[in-house]
Design a protein around this nucleic acid. Sequence first.
DNA 1: AATGTTAATCGTAATATTGCGATATAATTA
DNA 2: TAATTATATCGCAATATTACGATTAACATT
Lengths: 109, 109
Amino acid sequence: MGVTRSEIFSEEQNQLSAWLKAMAHPARLAILQRILVANTCICGDLVDELGLAQATISQHLKELKNAGIIQGTIEGVSVCYCINPTTWKTIQDKLGGLFNAYKPINNCC
Amino acid sequence: MGVTRSEIFSEEQNQLSAWLKAMAHPARLAILQRILVANTCICGDLVDELGLAQATISQHLKELKNAGIIQGTIEGVSVCYCINPTTWKTIQDKLGGLFNAYKPINNCC
DNA sequence: AATGTTAATCGTAATATTGCGATATAATTA
DNA sequence: TAATTATATCGCAATATTACGATTAACATT
């Protein structure tokens, strides 16, 4: 016991929750915001800007990358991370569908 | 070590990540979708529909409630849950801002 | 009052996450 | 080639999450 029972949920529910989970940490939100603002980004910058150790930043970047939200290319000695456009659009659409599904016409609660 | 260092992030980053975390579980997504589809408050027949124990469902509902995403009113012997319109709108706006901040004009990665 | 129904809470076991020092890896420069 | 720079990975400790049986609490029905 103690492990999420993914098998009883739909593939879509599991995928969306995985994306949300990847984003659901202040450090990872900060990283994403930093990438969005800079329109590019390097790991070393983040270590200076956020107050976390290099190993920790690297781990957070890895999680965002594993989720497919960002992608990185080697840029000489450093690594350049940026948004994965396809995944970004997909999450945006799925969340749009979820949030727009709410119609505040009921008055029961 | 091992505890999220909230103090180094902005209030907004911590709040948004808390909301995302509350949604970032397939069971809680399923609960939200169920509430949205029913378009009216549904009670604890979630136990029948999802394949989780009553204690587990109750715990997930509590987390969504603690995050302010849903609200519940006692309806006789059962409890009626529904979306919290204010929070829902706020999250939608914040996420909209985040996702729209991406301009795919760069060509770095 | 006794019984039944519904949901919350408690306690616990299994597992996952977070953070970081230490170390390894890979490309660059001296 | 050796030293330097930038990231990734390993290993570990602290903490959080997930799930569920058992119990409790609150209301409804008999």
